[in-house]
Simulated scan of single mutants.
Amino acid sequence: MTDTPKSGPDSMEAPNRTAVTAFVLLGFTEHPKLRPLLAILFFALFLLMHLVTLSGHLAIVVVTLADPALDTPMYFFLRNLSSIEICYTLVIVPKMLANFLAMSRLISLTECAAQMYFFISLGGAECFLLAVMSYDRYVAICNPLRYTLIMNRPFCLQLLAAACASGFALSLGLTALIFRLPFCRSHEINHFFCDIPPVLYLACSDTRTDEVAVFLVCTSILLVPFLLILASYALITNTILRIRSAQGRRKAFSTCAAHLVVAVLHYGCAIFIYIRPKASYDLEKDKVVSLIYTNVTPMLYPMIYSLRNKEVKGALGRLWVRTVASGRS
């Protein structure tokens, strides 16, 4: 190899490769003639969805804190899941909404790295917490007589801390790995936030080692908890099928149905995006899937939990009655 630099963006000199200070988030409205109208429509739609999402999760947090009947391990984990979802959407959606109306869609390198770090951290913490919740359901159904002894408050706090620490620790290594790469193809990120695939796509060095590392980290965050959830539900299903009473089987399954639906939605989208090689990326399709798991599924979670859960609906009703009564007094 000679010292004379070749032409083209993929062979820029090393100083130019590392001189990136900002990216441009292209988002969804690349066509200039359609951009103003689409931007306003998208802003209104996703602002409404964001407000619904925040309201739903805040309602779960408030009602599980306020109602003594929901002072159980299951609702302790549900409250923390909703808290993570609130932070998770706040990392992505406000910037996305601002970019719909902004003339400039610049995001600094530091801001991009921070957004990716907290997005992966909170998403990873949610993955591990969903696995913890499946274990909670396993103990409740398969070992009910020892449930309160096993799932005591200190142990629940330890499980929550382990889930959050795992997500934040793995995210730190993965984010540092990606942002040590030189970027020289373009400064335009074909996405609405700093996600792993579109940022990795801009790297101009050999990323095969980085792709393997990303795959291993994503496998740890996604596949390992998902396999634990499948194992838990295999044991739960076996126990439920041995219950003689049809009413007993329905009651046992109803306590797991909402969590199972949420887990399938969360892991299905995330595995599709992250557990595959760089060569198979389709950034346009990936944006649509990302839009679903960052905006649509977080909005659905409170509905899934509240509509299928009589205890949550009852607690919401009691909280509403107390609020109205205190307002009149």
Score class of each variant (00 low, 15 high):
residue 174 L to P: 13
residue 74 M to E: 12
residue 35 R to T: 02
residue 263 A to I: 08
residue 157 L to V: 10
residue 262 V to I: 13
residue 135 Y to N: 07
residue 4 T to Y: 15
residue 242 R to I: 09
residue 164 C to F: 14
residue 310 K to W: 03
residue 230 L to G: 10
residue 264 V to H: 01
residue 53 T to Y: 10
residue 10 D to Y: 08
residue 46 F to C: 04
residue 259 H to K: 04
residue 271 I to M: 13
residue 161 A to W: 14
residue 132 V to E: 01
residue 91 V to W: 03
residue 2 T to L: 08
residue 262 V to H: 10
residue 72 T to V: 04
residue 78 L to W: 03
residue 186 S to Q: 12
residue 317 G to R: 14
residue 143 N to Y: 06
residue 260 L to Q: 13
residue 21 T to C: 07
residue 188 E to R: 14
residue 306 S to V: 09
residue 113 A to K: 15
residue 259 H to Y: 04
residue 146 R to S: 14
residue 239 T to E: 15
residue 208 R to S: 12
residue 123 G to Y: 09
residue 298 P to S: 08
residue 270 A to I: 13
residue 288 V to W: 06
residue 90 L to F: 15
residue 270 A to P: 10
residue 199 V to G: 07
residue 155 F to A: 05
residue 297 T to I: 07
residue 79 R to I: 00
residue 275 I to T: 01
residue 275 I to N: 06
residue 86 I to W: 05
residue 251 K to A: 15
residue 270 A to S: 15
residue 220 S to G: 14
residue 139 V to M: 12
residue 240 I to K: 00
residue 129 L to M: 10
residue 208 R to L: 04
residue 95 K to S: 07
residue 38 L to N: 11
residue 291 L to T: 13
residue 122 L to H: 03
residue 220 S to E: 10
residue 215 F to M: 13
residue 155 F to H: 12
residue 189 I to T: 02
residue 47 L to I: 08
residue 167 G to L: 13
residue 202 L to N: 00
residue 152 N to H: 02
residue 252 A to L: 02
residue 231 A to H: 04
residue 195 D to L: 02
residue 125 A to D: 01
residue 117 Y to T: 10
